[in-house]
Nucleic acid binder design. Structure first.
Length: 465
RNA sequence: GUGGGAGUAGUUCAGUUGGUUAGAACGUUGGAUUGUGGUUCCAAAGGUCGGGGGUUCGAAUCCCCUCUUCCACCCCA
């Protein structure tokens, strides 16, 4: 007892109440996915290192949890090679990488999209395209935990792969709107397009600085235009370009205003115009949906851009400031890295844990009393309990949640148990009741108590509930 | 990976310029005439003060290291 047990950092236990709420969340999300015809899949918690590495950029690779090989994992180490490398202290990163590959061949999944791509390639024969799937599973990241950031968390992914149609993007936005409407959260759906970003870079003469350009741009709402400009300049982007860009990026008007501004700015860029056209079409489709949430074009939305090629989607809570609670986009060639080129997909991922945190903070969860026991039989001893069992069986057969207290403790203890577990009805059958053939039914909220003949017990309880 | 705050009973926290057996509240357990909960009253249990090292006659308190956690950055759900 002098040593307290604990769980790894960034992980959490979920007691009954959080669990019921999480189930409510997952069920809501799942029911919407199913309503649009998406099919469930699951993939293993671990993937081979080959599948995962190199898919998330340099930063992402570092955040993958590696799994040590079983058994005598040290036998695979090439000591000669390592000794050679280790002599140079600058090599420490390389040494770690080399060593990892020698003692580990699998890792915990980092997201659901890459395993999905692997799944599609591996099962291409069984899949008919377009393939619409959803997947609700935990993922793991060796990130430093903080508010709204965990090392083990759930993602709820919906993707459609094998279709270029913008109707898919529109459908996903409708799904987002449905889910958050059902949950009662106020959100804004931000959209952008990778091609527009490329166009902005091109039209302002940035050349191939796209990555540096977007990484800084993504921080605009956080650090402001001055700091973004500074970062751009430090990356070698010319002041001239920045002056051209500032009014476009800082444009705060409506979507149509933004589009007309962009139309003029991007006219020299084919990619940019293509992206703009996509956004326009998407907005046209969405306008027919009558969404509850607002959809706004946000040019600062870049989202890592590891594999996104078209639409970029992100959802922010208007209730709580917590980073994005849902995000995704189109990736034209994700399966290409697994040897199946030319298949385009688009998908979004709901961050269940962050959504939970938001719901929690705004008291957005409905009362979930419908999960606990409704009727408790007190235990007056073995013989009396034997009488209770068939009666409890009848009550359950009527669909009422019912339990018998397992130990013949003092009645006070058993009532305390009922009280603490918010059980509304208690049935007492002691020696007296057993002889009389009548049960004492106590309604906990009022303390009122009535006697009911055994055959009428189920119907009486049904009346009370 | 970088920077800052915090670690004292199950939980939330007190703990005076270093000074005797480290406190409270809530919770837990037991009791207040035998088969009746929530309120009340009484009592008890529970801490090598995150861990290790150092300074000191003496450390929860001062210094160093480490772990954990929270916050910010990087990045992200």
């Amino acid at each position: 007892m002098n040593q307290k047990p604990s769980i790894p950092k960034g992980t959490r236990d979920f007691g009954p109440v959080p669990m019921m709420r999480r189930n409510y969340l997952f069920n809501t999300i799942r029911s919407v996915f199913q309503l649009y015809g998406y099919l469930p899949i699951e993939t293993p918690a671990m993937e081979t290192l080959d599948t995962l590495m190199g898919k998330y950029g340099e930063e992402g690779d570092k955040l993958v949890f590696n799994i040590l090989n079983s058994g005598d994992f040290a036998s695979g180490i090439n000591t000669e090679l390592l000794q050679k490398l280790i002599q140079d202290p600058d090599n420490s990163a390389l040494v770690s990488r080399t060593m990892t590959s020698q003692v580990s061949e699998k890792a915990l999944r980092y997201d659901l999209t890459v395993p999905f791509a692997r799944f599609v390639v591996q099962h291409r024969d069984e899949i008919s395209f377009p393939f619409k799937r959803y997947q609700i599973q935990p993922v793991w990241r060796a990130d430093r935990p903080q508010k709204g950031r965990y090392r083990e968390f759930y993602q709820c992914d919906v993707d459609v792969i094998g279709s270029d149609s913008l109707l898919n993007e529109a459908e996903l936005i409708k799904i987002i709107d449905d889910v958050f409407s059902k949950l009662g959260l106020n959100i804004v759906i931000k959209i952008n397009n990778r091609k527009i970003l490329a166009g902005l870079a091109e039209a302002s003469g940035l050349g191939d600085n796209l990555t540096d350009f977007t990484v800084a741009l993504d921080k605009l709402d956080k650090i402001g235009i001055e700091h973004v400009s500074k970062e751009w300049i430090s990356k070698g982007i010319s002041g001239e370009s920045i002056i051209k860009l500032t009014p476009i990026i800082g444009h705060m008007g409506s979507n149509t205003d933004k589009i007309s501004g962009l139309k003029d700015f991007l006219k020299s860029s084919t990619a940019g115009m293509k992206g703009l056209e996509e956004v326009e079409t998407l907005l046209t489709i969405i306008n027919r949906f009558n969404l509850n949430s607002s959809v706004e074009i946000d040019l600062t939305l870049a989202r890592g851009l590891n594999y996104y090629t078209g639409a970029i989607i992100e959802v922010k809570s208007l209730d709580i400031h917590i980073g994005s609670i849902c995000g995704g986009g189109r990736y034209d060639d994700l399966t290409g890295i697994f040897g199946m080129p030319g298949v385009s997909g688009v998908g979004v991922s709901f961050g269940a844990d962050r959504i939970y945190d938001v719901m929690e903070q705004i008291n957005g969860f409905p009362a979930l009393a419908q999960s606990g026991t409704q009727v408790l039989f007190l235990n007056f001893g073995f013989d009396e309990a034997t009488v209770c069992q068939p009666l409890a069986g009848q009550i359950r057969a009527a669909g009422i949640r019912c339990e018998l207290y397992p130990d013949p403790l003092k009645i006070k203890k058993q009532l305390q148990y009922a009280d603490q577990n918010h059980i509304p009805i208690v049935v007492m059958i002691g020696e007296t009741e057993r002889n009389a053939g009548k049960a004492a039914v106590k309604i906990m909220s009022s303390g009122e108590q009535i006697n009911v003949a055994f055959p009428d017990l189920t119907s009486e309880i049904r009346k009370i509930i």
